[in-house]
Amino acid sequence: MDIIRGVFKMPRLWWLISLILLVLLATLPLYGSAYTVILITAIIMYVILTVSWTMFFAPTGYLSLATAAFFGIGIYTMAILGEQLPLLPAVIAGGLVSFVVALIVGAITLRLRGVYFTIFTFGLVELIKHLLLFWEINVTGTRGRFVVLENNNTIFGVILGIFVVLMLTYYLLRRSKYGLALRSIGENEEAAAHLGVNVNLLKVFTFALSAFFMGAAGAIMATRWTYVDPYVAFNVLHSFLPVLMAIFGGMSQLYSPIIGAVIFAYIEEQLLTRFPEYFMLIFGVILVVAILYLPNGLVGLVRKWWQKGLREENVNS
């Protein structure tokens, strides 16, 4: 009951803004060009990866680089089940398989702390990629797989749906007592345990929850790419980009990773189409500047200006 009541406690203005944006997005296929729909699909994919990564990292401080692994598991689930299952169940299956794998991996590795955890999760991407490659070549005798093709507007609708469910989940998690417990784990894991928090269970479950959304996003994106192989599906960039996007936008507010991911993904797209030769170079410069001068991300910077403005106004009046 607490959870249901919580949904209605968010300030009205925010609900209104979110709702308007959502309606604008949902009706995009009616007025936007095919290119816009595809572009925004890609952006929302990054937003999902970034927000679900932040959901675990921001409170606990556990830096996972396994995003690409769970994303890839979603992709392969769709590649394998896409022809047997209708679209939505197949997407949910992608999320669930990632969820289960994350539960198992989490149970083994979340005892590790700091850099050891990060390195392990990074290794996981490579491990799954090469296991899959081995399996495909030696057992199934293929290198890549074709995935059922879906209509671009359908893909857009599904990915928007995943995004909405993710945001609601993250919002409720943040304001629930479990959100408080996750933060206490990030602050001092030992103290949290001695205050009655089942630290391991909570960590593993939240890790798996974030993996669910990564997997679901992978499953739906697979239908857009139509052909996948282990190198495409388990691309480590999908582990690093969400981290950079979250740093770029900041993580303090619910919306900060979204803003980071949207701007970042848009810049990436623009640079890639306009300056394909200099893309990585410009991108690198932007990143360095962001990390050096935006310790709390873009949102942190704007909030700082905002508060400074308010203070000056108070002084003047």
């Binding site: 408080l180 206490s184 949290a192 205050l195 009655g196």
Partner: peptide, 13 residues
Amino acid sequence: MPVFENVRLGSFF
């Protein structure tokens, strides 16, 4: 975390 939430965690869990 604010003082209040420090204490609340104990009573929640």
